[in-house]
Computed example of a mutant assay.
Amino acid sequence: MKRTCFVCATMGNLIKVLSRDIDNNAGNFFLDFENAEASWSEKEVWEKVNEVLKEARVILDELQAYAGAGEDIRLAIQSPSEEGVQERAWSAVLPLVAKLKRFYEFSHKLEVSLRCLLDIFTSPEAPPTQQLENKQALARQFALILHFTLRFDELKMTIPAIQNDFSYYRRTISRMRINNLCGDADTEVNNELANRMSLFYASATPMLKTLSDATIKFVSDNPEIPVENTTDCLSTMAGVCKVMLETPEYRSRFTSDETLLFCLRVMVGVIILYDHVHPAGAFVKTSNIDMKGCIRVLREQPASSVEGLLDALRYTTKHLNDEATPKHIRNMLSNN
């Protein structure tokens, strides 16, 4: 079934959002998630990010189809002296490790794309909310990156074969190295790269961690840019998604569950990034994100659809358990 860049084709035309700008003046502005086209000023960055998003679609398809080499590995472990069994397991694991390597390397491309977009949305030329409004094609790409990130991590958490396959690969490589049998296999993923990949896949949400770290690094690498420029951009995106989800007029235009999940993933993604970047986090009363409203929107969905997103808020945010977090917010995110 054909996807539409994992974003809904029916998000409505211009979505009206009430948002506070950096001068704290209430104002109306619009984000067009459906029909926004890149202007000449956006075109260069848009094309670069679009190439990454094209690859992202392929990555998701490959991850969703990832079957693992569990049976071959099991037989190899049970019959360590049978050379044919060992060769079959090794032959099954090698292409999978190559795929895992590609996923890992793609995370760096995603990081570069995120930083490119943050460069634009935090530019001193205009407030972040105005940048989002004026560069809606890039705002849409920002949302697509977040959607991919949450979707990748959701899928990864359901595929234990990933870490099992890679662990088997590393054990086998170590044994081959000891016996001087490495040959060309060792050049696929050398020891240094294997260590980095192990850390990456050890995270429950590796792509989200990559983006969180990248956003933090963006802020620290650009001290001349007020941190509010970044957090205002993120809180605005959270507000856009929340309004789309809680307003019947907009929800009625959604024609599929994937449309709904797109908005939910983007909303959760920007909340997590905001919580990692803002000194006080996303959960305090003074936060520019309506956390109560965002969690309520999540809770209104079928539990099977959003449990992974709720877990992302529970376990990958930084400030949820701070004393400053209101008790009712923690209660809303409890597992009860």
Rank of each mutant, 00 (worst) to 15 (best):
K209Y: 05
Y201P: 00
E300G: 05
I225Y: 00
E258R: 06
A280N: 09
T259C: 15
P206V: 10
S235V: 01
A214G: 12
F283Q: 11
T247V: 02
K217N: 10
A303H: 13
Y201E: 00
L245R: 06
Y274E: 11
L245G: 01
P248F: 04
L298C: 11
A185M: 07
M207W: 09
R299D: 01
R296C: 07
V266Y: 10
A194T: 05
K285L: 12
E188A: 09
D186Q: 12
E192R: 14
D290Q: 05
Y201K: 07
T187D: 13
V277W: 04
V240H: 08
V268T: 15
A280T: 13
F254D: 05
T230F: 01
D290A: 11
P226F: 00
V240S: 09
S212A: 15
E224Y: 01
R265I: 01
H276I: 04
V219P: 03
R251M: 05
V266P: 06
F200R: 14
E249A: 13
N229M: 09
R265K: 05
L245H: 06
T215W: 02
T210K: 15
Y201Q: 09
A282M: 07
V243A: 04
K292T: 09
N288L: 15
T231S: 06
L199W: 11
D186V: 03
D290P: 04
E188C: 13
H278F: 08
T236N: 10
E246L: 11
A238S: 10
L199S: 15
D186T: 06
I216F: 00
A204F: 01
M207A: 11
R296W: 04
L264K: 07
R265E: 01
F200S: 12
T236D: 06
D221H: 03
Y201R: 07
R265W: 00
L264I: 12
N229K: 09
H276Q: 15
G281I: 09
K209H: 07
T255F: 04
D221N: 15
N190R: 06
I295V: 15
L273S: 05
T230P: 01
F254Q: 04
K292M: 09
S212Q: 12
S212L: 11
F262M: 08
F218S: 04
V277Q: 05
R299W: 00
C233M: 10
R251I: 06
L273A: 13
E246I: 14
V266M: 09
D232N: 11
L193D: 01
V266R: 03
